[in-house]
Amino acid sequence: MLRWPSLLILCWLLAACSQQPTLDNAVRSDDNAMPADLSGSWERDYWRGDDVNRTLDRWFRQLARSTPDQRLPGYPSLDNPGALISPQSVASILALARLADVITRLRTFTISQSEHEISVERDQDFDMLCEFYDGVAQGATTDYGAEICGWDGDQFVSRLVLPDGLLVSHRFTIAPDSENLHVATTVSSSATGLSFTLSRFYTKFEPYPSQFDCIDTFSRNRVCTMGEDSR
């Protein structure tokens, strides 16, 4: 019986070998310097980015353009030559699309970045975390999956490797003006060889400053005092 570490490696290998243009194998973190500063509060720019339904339409239109002689009767094929798709695969791509949509629905998030850590704090979801020590980038690991993270050039990449060959990848690219952020989220399954990517754009914003200076304590929960500016 395969144990979890073996499964993890297997899943990772399967994911790495599948044809997924938005995922490359190299998650590099060669030195301690961060190639880009992603820190700040980010707000979704709804004018830009993918709509999940339109992206799915596009995906199915590509299927329709596939070479007819590569299709089994009644079965569409993928746009990559030779690949065949079954009704189960259609259900799978819809599932991947739905999960990608759910994951990327958040309106705002905050990125904290220090010399040793990048943390993407999201409401209603866990914080994506990547720690950097001695040139090694390490994400979180639990009994249910593992985050693999690092820099790929100027892009910060966080991949969540889940059982059953499910992979959720986020690729963060900051604009030269540092005020806009593009996040490409890909959900893929090595079991079906399918992947689905959604692009989201975010703009930086300054959160409204609080009137209070608060600190979390263990026995008294959150303790707040009036901030300096309010006195």
Partner: peptide, 16 residues
Amino acid sequence: GSYETIQTLYDNYRWA
């Protein structure tokens, strides 16, 4: 590969 299955996988990790 169904949504229920992959959502459970994601939710388990999110919970942990």
